[in-house]
Design a protein around this nucleic acid. Sequence first.
DNA 1: AAAAAATGTAATATATATTTTACTTTATAT
DNA 2: ATATAAAGTAAAATATATATTACATTTTTT
Lengths: 75, 75
Amino acid sequence: MRHLKEFTIKNKVKLVRIEKGRLTQGELAKLVGVTRQTMNLIEAQKYNPTIRVCLLISKHLEIPLDELFWIDENH
Amino acid sequence: MRHLKEFTIKNKVKLVRIEKGRLTQGELAKLVGVTRQTMNLIEAQKYNPTIRVCLLISKHLEIPLDELFWIDENH
DNA sequence: AAAAAATGTAATATATATTTTACTTTATAT
DNA sequence: ATATAAAGTAAAATATATATTACATTTTTT
């Protein structure tokens, strides 16, 4: 049935957070102002957060939005 | 009571769309896959869209996310 | 190896983004 | 000046992001 959904949203929040090695999932969540569970779901790419949350993640991880989130077109 | 809300999310979707002069509000909405009303509210900065919608707007307006959306810290 | 901290995950509840329908006002074209 | 298209807006319904609580599993620390 090819391309029921043309594309997906991906992110590397977890990757970047761990690379920087400073923050725990819970700490980042607290800084951003969401629950740890929400941050967990975002990192697991299980749903699309709001731009507000994304901007705050981007700010605290010190990495541009465009590098954190992108559209993954399925080929 | 200063800073009930520490910051707000702002965007220049409407500005960029009009600058480019190619797209109507309704056309952009259709490209992005939301209703015209939703696009209208986004342009009016009345709520925070999801990253999915933002990425699609960014794509069709051909301008980076970071330039389209930002945190407005109240001083 | 045991204890403690961090992470994954699930169910239910709540808040809010988005849709639908519809109408009014403003801008553009004839 | 009139007609037509575009934009602003509003109420009610729906979908989904986020919160809350709770527990299981994995990783890190001692």
